[in-house]
Design a protein around this nucleic acid. Structure first.
Lengths: 243, 243
DNA sequence: GCTGTTTCTTGATTCAGATCAAGGAACGCA
DNA sequence: TGCGTTCCTTGATCTGAATCAAGAAACAGC
């Protein structure tokens, strides 16, 4: 996987062609984007942008996982977003980066300079519309996360996290196996869920002991009992379509 | 205040004319909106929309305070947004209400039927742009709140809440007095901050005992020592312009 | 003003998760 | 194949906020 070269992919062959900011673009619009884009790679752990830095580029996440985080005066940090392939970084109209953006795994970005991109958004309703949809999806996700952070127990947080990964199914295959690869360390998961790494570890192992999941290696989680997992999230089942 | 009649205000005299979804509209666009809008009033405590309900109308909040909240299976609830005048309710493209919307105080909405409004958004870039800005502002606010919910202590949460009200200065006057009217009960504040009402009460009184604020009546808070209050929020002071 | 209701305060106790503290397993690299 | 490092687990203890439990103050309606 780490040998894939994303530095010269044509838009038509791009893995996020139909979900990213370009999703609704026709061929003409796409070739315009094609002429503006540049790829850039980051290794796991690298900082992509610092909070407060001037926002020079916006980008689509092509491959890998990145995170947005905020920090308090004394160093406590909270992840405020998890970026997966097709998610968008930076916003037209913003001149400053609002939070630290870190490459959680190795990451490839499809970048655009902010100024020309802003012009493009003005001229291209398809891009503006898609950007709006992406922002609203992020807002929904942020609000779900507020409920989690404010009211869920440690157990419910862990169950919700695993369920979220299962739903988004990071790993591409769809052939009935329920094995997930955690894209983060226990420490990073703790930062995401508003917990400590010890509590994360304890709750993972509690779910394992109960036969809801199995763990193997550091990152592999297999969901054995999806219903019990959903039950453990504490979420209200109604109001949503099963998936 | 409760005798103001908002049922037949002309857009040009509207108190939120320059901040709401119509902020960037020219006179022609405004008269189009004028022909589509209807006002509706709600009393404090009334439910404006239920989660899961079909989204028939979108609206601007003209007057009062409303809240968005989510509920877990067993009844625990978390407020995920506080809506102040000029904030927008509902989104084009969404067909379902995503959370319960409640009138915290008496509220007046300027409503539009969703379908025609969606068409208007398609045709009117000024509205689409403004809607985008409003969504991004909400996203920033949601992310600040995630940091609060995940990592702040009860004391820091209360200080942040008071500071937020002071910054947004709900009460209109600007003549040097630092008196704020809480738009919510202790219980509602607790729901917003991910605390219990007892803890909210204790922390308010702790800040009072230390001379940071004074309390009088149920809803009145006067900020005595703004610096100490800011200090107590735990926020990292850099990266933002003082205000 | 009086009265009932709602909202707020304060105290005692409990408990979930943080913190402190060792080990131990997994993985990268030579 | 072993060695060093990073990451994870598990146990003991502590603590901030929740919970349980009365009262007291504020406000609304008569």
């Amino acid at each position: 996987m780490n040998k894939l070269n994303f530095t010269a992919v044509r838009c038509n062959e791009c893995p996020i062609r139909h979900r990213a900011v370009c999703a609704r673009c026709d061929d003409d619009e796409l070739s315009l984007l094609e002429s503006m884009k540049t790829y850039k790679n980051y290794s796991a752990g690298e900082i992509i942008m610092w909070r407060g830095e001037p926002l020079e580029h916006v980008a689509s996440l092509v491959h890998g996982v990145a995170s947005l985080s905020k920090t308090l005066e004394d160093g406590r940090t909270q992840m405020v977003g998890l970026l997966l392939p097709s998610d968008f970084i930076g916003r037209p109209g913003r001149t400053q980066v609002e939070f630290d953006v870190t490459a959680t795994t190795d990451v490839t970005l499809c970048r655009f300079e902010r100024k020309p991109f802003e012009q493009l958004v003005e001229d291209t309703p398809h891009v503006a519309q898609r950007l709006m949809e992406l922002a609203l999806d992020e807002l929904d996700a942020a609000r779900d996360w507020m409920l989690l952070l404010g009211r869920k127990t440690a157990r419910e947080k862990i169950a919700t996290f695993i369920d979220m990964l299962a739903r988004r199914k990071i790993s591409a295959d769809e052939n009935g196996d329920h094995t997930l690869e955690m894209p983060m360390t226990r420490d990073q998961i703790a930062n995401y869920l508003g917990l400590t790494l010890e509590t994360v570890s304890r709750q993972f192992n509690a779910l394992k002991k109960e036969g809801v999941i199995t763990l193997s290696g550091r990152k592999e989680v297999e969901v054995i009992d999806l219903l019990a997992l959903r039950e453990a999230t504490g979420d209200d089942a109604d109001g949503g379509i099963l998936s």
